[in-house]
Simulated scan of single mutants.
Amino acid sequence: MEIKNNILTPIEFMSIIIGNIIGVGILVLPANVSKYAYEDGWISIILGSIYPFYICLLGIYISKIYPDKNILFLSRKYFGKIVGNILNFLFFTIFIYNAITGLAPTGYILVNFLSFFLNKNNTIFLISLVALYTVFKDLKLIGRLNIVMLFITIFLLTFPLPGIKEGQMLNIRPVFKSSISQILKGAYETIFSYTGIEVFFLIYPYVENKKKIKSYSLKACLFVLISYSWVQFICLYYLGSETINKVNWPLITTTETLIIPLINNMRYIFIFLWVNIIIKTISNNYFFSTYIFADIIGGKIDRKFVVILVFPVILFISTYFENAVIINNFIKLATPFVLAYTIFFITIIAILVKKDVSYGKNV
C-alpha cells in the first residue's frame, strides 16, 4: 500500500487496535473466566491484560527505532528473505485464525437468536460477503470504519446498566476467595479475548503523528481492559458465578434488563448491532491477512486479487465446524500456539532491534 494514500490519524490507529481485539471474545469472556476464578474473575482479566500491554510496549519501542518500517520488513532484514518470509507467513496465519474464530461463532449466534430462517453455513456466507466488500477498500476506510464501530461499542456496553438495579451484592462476594491457581487458570481463559493486538506492528508506519503512537496505543489497551472488567462485573453482579457458567453468552443475557416501551426485546437489537462489531473485527483480520500475503510475494499480485484468493479459505474453514462445541475446542487448542508464536516472534525482533541500537548500527 502506498503510505500517502493510507495515512491514519492517531484516533484511527487507536480504533483499529481496539476494533481488532474486541469482537466475539467479549461475549464469552465472563463465562470462561468465572468457570475458574468465580467472583475474582476481574483479577484474572487484569492479569490477562499483561499480554496486550507487553506486546504494545514492544511495539512502541520498535516503532521509535523504525517508525516507517513494519515488522514484515524487519523480519526479512534480520532473518533474510526466505526465513523472514516464512516467519511472516506464520504471522499471516494468525490473522486468518482471528478472522475464522470470529466468523464461525457468529454464524451460530445469528442462527440461534436472529436468522432462524437461514442455516449456519448460509449465514456465515452472507457475513463473509459483507467482509469481502469491506476488505476491497483501502486502509483509510478501515480506519474510519473502526472509529464508527468504536462509538457503537461504547454505546452497546451501556446496555447492561439496568442490571445494577436487578443484581445483588452477594453475587460479587466474597472477594479473594479463589486460589492463585484458579485465578491463573481464569487469566489463561482470557487469552482468546485479548488476541488482535498484533495488528499494531502492521499499521504504526501509517500513523501521521508518530509522537502519539505511544499514548494512543496504551489508551487502546486500557480501553479494552476497562471494557472487559466492566462486562465481567455486570454479568457477575446480575447473574452470579453459578448462573454465568450455565449461559453460553452471558453479556447477551444481561441485555434483557434494558426495557424500553414499544420494544419487545432489546436482546435482538443488541445482537444485531454487536454482530456489526464482530463483522468489523473479521474484516480487519481479513484485510491485514491479505496485506501480509501481498507483501510476502513482493507485490507481484495486487492485494485485491489476494482478497479473492483468501476468501474461499476463510469461508471453507469457517463452515467446516459442525457445532459450537467443536469451535470452542479448536479455539482452546490453537490459541496457546498463537500466543506463543506472537510473543516469540515480536520479542526476537525487539531484541534484534535493541542489539542494533546497542552496537550503534545505522537503523
Rank of each mutant, 00 (worst) to 15 (best):
D302G: 10
I234L: 06
T253D: 10
I86P: 03
N85C: 06
N5R: 15
L27C: 05
V357E: 09
L90Y: 11
L29W: 07
P312R: 06
V313N: 05
K137T: 12
T347W: 03
L87R: 02
F305P: 03
V363I: 14
T9S: 13
G48L: 02
S49I: 06
N171D: 04
I271K: 08
L202S: 11
S63Y: 02
G240W: 11
Y54K: 01
L129T: 01
P174E: 02
N248P: 04
E39Q: 14
K77Q: 08
L145D: 01
L273W: 05
N98E: 05
L273H: 06
I71P: 07
I271P: 12
V224H: 02
L114I: 15
F223A: 04
K81D: 07
I277Q: 13
F125H: 00
T93G: 08
I183S: 11
I278C: 00
N362F: 13
A324W: 06
I71C: 07
I260S: 02
S193V: 06
L72N: 09
I346P: 11
I43P: 12
L145G: 02
L110A: 13
K246W: 08
G59Q: 01
F321Y: 13
V24K: 01
T195G: 08
Y238P: 00
N85M: 04
V207D: 00
F293G: 02
I292K: 09
V307A: 10
E2S: 15
